[in-house]
Design a protein around this nucleic acid. Sequence first.
DNA 1: TGTCATGGCT
Length: 735
Amino acid sequence: METLSTPLPSLPRNSTSLTVKNDHDHDHPVFLHIKQCTNSSQLGQIHAHMLRTGLFFDPYSASKLFAASALLPFSSLDYARKVFDQIPKPNLHSWNTLIRVYASSPEPLQGILIFLRMVHESPYYPNKFTFPFVIKAAAEIFSLCVGQALHGLAIKASLGADVFISNSLIHLYLSCGDLDSAYRVFTMIGEKDVVSWNSMITGLAQRGCAEKAFQLFQEMEEEGVKPNDVTMVGVLSACAKKLDLELGRWVCSYIERKGIRVDLTLSNGMLDMYTKCGSLEDAKRLFDMMEEKDIVTWTTMLDGYAKLGEYETAKQVLDTMPRQDIAAWNALISGYEQNGKSKEALSLYHELQQSQIAKPDGITLVSALSACSQLGAMGIGECIHAYVKEQGIKLNCHLTTSLIDMYSKCGDIKKALDVFYSVGRRDVFVWSAMIAGLAMHGQGRDAIDLFSKMQETMIKPNSVTFTNVLCACSHAGLVKEGKTFFNQMEPVYGIRPGIQHYSCMVDMLGRAGLLEEAVEFIEKMPILPSDSVWGALLGACQIHGNVELAELACRHLLELDPENNGAYVLLSNVYAKTGKWDGVSRLRKHMRVTGLKKEQGCSRIEVNGVIHEFLAGDNCHPLSKEIYSKLDEIVVRLKSAGYVPNKSHLLQLIEEDEMQEHALNLHSEKLAIAFGLQYVEVSQPIRIIKNLRVCGDCHSVAKLVSRLYNREIILRDRYRFHHFSGGNCSCKDYW
DNA sequence: TGTCATGGCT
C-alpha cells in the first residue's frame, strides 16, 4: 500500500477543536494534504485519519475532504457518494458539490433528486451556487418543466439577476428547444458576460439556427464583448451547419487576426468545420500542422473522409489512429449509412461485434438501425433491439426514434407501436417518427389521433411533424382534415409551410382525383413550385390517367430537372394506361437517344438474416430456376381463379400478347413473392421491400396470392406499405 | 464551489 510522501501532522484527538468554525481553523494542515493528493489511496488514508481523529465530524472539514473526493481527477463518483453519506450534517457547500458532480455524471437525474433532498432534509436554502448546478442537471435530462420550476425558485430566492444563473438558464432552455425563453432570459441580463453570449451562440448553432447564431456573434462584437476560444468553437459550428466554407475560412482568419488562443478543442472545431463544409484539402492541411492531436482529431478526420465517400482513406485513418474508440467506428458506419451504403454499414457493424475492439453504444445502434430501415432488414433490426435489451442500454429518444423507424419501415407497425408505448420519454422526434410510421401504413386516422395526443403532452410539433401528418392524410384520402391542418400551420403553430408541405398537399389533392384543385393550389403557391411539387402532380395524373395535365407537369418537372428519368417513366405510364402507345414509343426513343435510363426495379426479402435481392428479369439468384418454376405455378393457379394480367403497366411497347405477359412476370416483386412463398416460414408474413412504386398488376397478383396461398404479404414500395391478406390490401386500392 | 466548447435521430 502506498504511503503519503510527508507524514501527517498529529491532529488533536479531543473534540474541543471540532466545533470551532472561525477562519484560522480553515487553514488546518490536513487541508494542504488533501490538496496535494495525487491518487485515491492517499485520499483514503487522509479519510481514515480524519475519521480516527474525529476531524471528519466537523462539517467544514468533511466538506473539504468530500470536495476532493468528488472533484479531483482520480476521483470516483461512487467513493464520493460514500463519503457524503458518512457526513452527519453536510454543509451547504457539500450539498452543492454533490449536485454538481451528479449534474455532469451519466446520472444527472440524481443531481435533481439530491437537490430535492437538500431542500427537504437540510436546514439550508439553495444559494447562488446551487442553482447553476441543479439547472445544469435539468438541462442534461432535457427537462423543461423541472427547469421552469427551478427558474421560478431562483426568482423567488431573489437570485433572478445572477448572471451565472441566467447563463445556466439560457443553456437549459436551449437544450430543451425553448428558444424563446432562452432569448428572453438573455435579453433580461443587465451585464451580459462572454459566457452569456457563448451560451446563446452555441445553443442556437446546435439547434439549427446557424444564421441567428452568426448574427448574435456580430452583435456581440458591436457591443464590445471580446469573443474567446469557446465563442469561436460555437461560431465554427454554425458555419459547419450552414455548410458555408467561405464564412468558415473567414472565421479561421479572424481567430488568427484577433490572436484568440487556439487550443486543441478549437483546432478540432476548425477541422470539423472544414470536413463538414466539404474541404478535405483544408482539413488535411490543418491536420498535418496540428502538433497535438487527440481521439476527437482523428475521428473528425475519419468522419470527414467517410461522409464524403472516401471510404478507403477513412478505413486507413481508422487503422492508423492510435486508439480506436467507438466514436471512430461510428463515424465510418454512419458514413456508409448516410450515403445509402446500408449493406456496407451493417457488415462493418458486424465486424465491430465480432472483433470486440470497442463496445457499440447508442450512436452505433442508431446508425445500424437506420441501415436496417433502409434495407428493410427486420431480422437484423430485431437482433439489435435484443442487444439493447440484453445490455440494459437505456432507450433515449434517439434510440427510440430509430427503433420505431426501423419497425415501421420493415413493415411491423405493431412492434413500432409497442416501442412507442413502452418508453417514458417522447420528444418531438419520437412522436413524429410514430406518426410517419402510421402514415406509411395507411393508418391515417390513427396518425391524426396520435397528433392530437402529442399536443396534449405539450410537445410542440415541428415542420417534419406536419410533413408526416399531411402525408398521413394523403395516403388515407383524408382531404378535409389535411386542408385544415395545412391552414392551421402558420396561424396556430407558427410554422411557415415549406416546399415539402406544398408537395404533400398537391399529392393529397391529386390522389383524391381533385386534379384541377391541385393545379389551382400550385398556381397560388407563394414560393416557387419545386420538382417534388410537379412530381406529385404527375404521379396523380398517372393514377387518374390525365394525359393533358401529365404533359404539363412533366414539362415543368423537366425544366427544373432535365435529368429526371422518373418524369419520363411516369408520363410514359400515363400514355400506356390510356393506350397512347405512340406516346410511349416516342418517350422510349427519347430516353434511348439521351441515354436516360429508368431506375431498375429491385425487390429485397430477408430470410434468416440474409438479404436476397431481385432485379426485374433477374436470374442471378442461385435458386433462380426454382423461383421461376414457382412463378409459373403461381400464374397458372391465379389464372384458374380468374386473374387477367393488366398490361397497361408495361413500360415498353411490346406487340405480342404473350411477350407482354412475360415482361409483366419479370417484375422484381413477383420474383420476391415466388421466393418468399417457398422459403419464408409459413407462420411468418412475407416481407418485401421495393425501390419503386408497385405496379397495378403486381398489386392484384399479391392480393390474389394472399388469398389463394393463405399467406400474409407485406410490401413496402417507394411511398408506403401494402399489407395483403385474404385477397385484400390495407391501402384499399388507394395508393 | 459556479454557467458556455468539437460526432448521431424524425
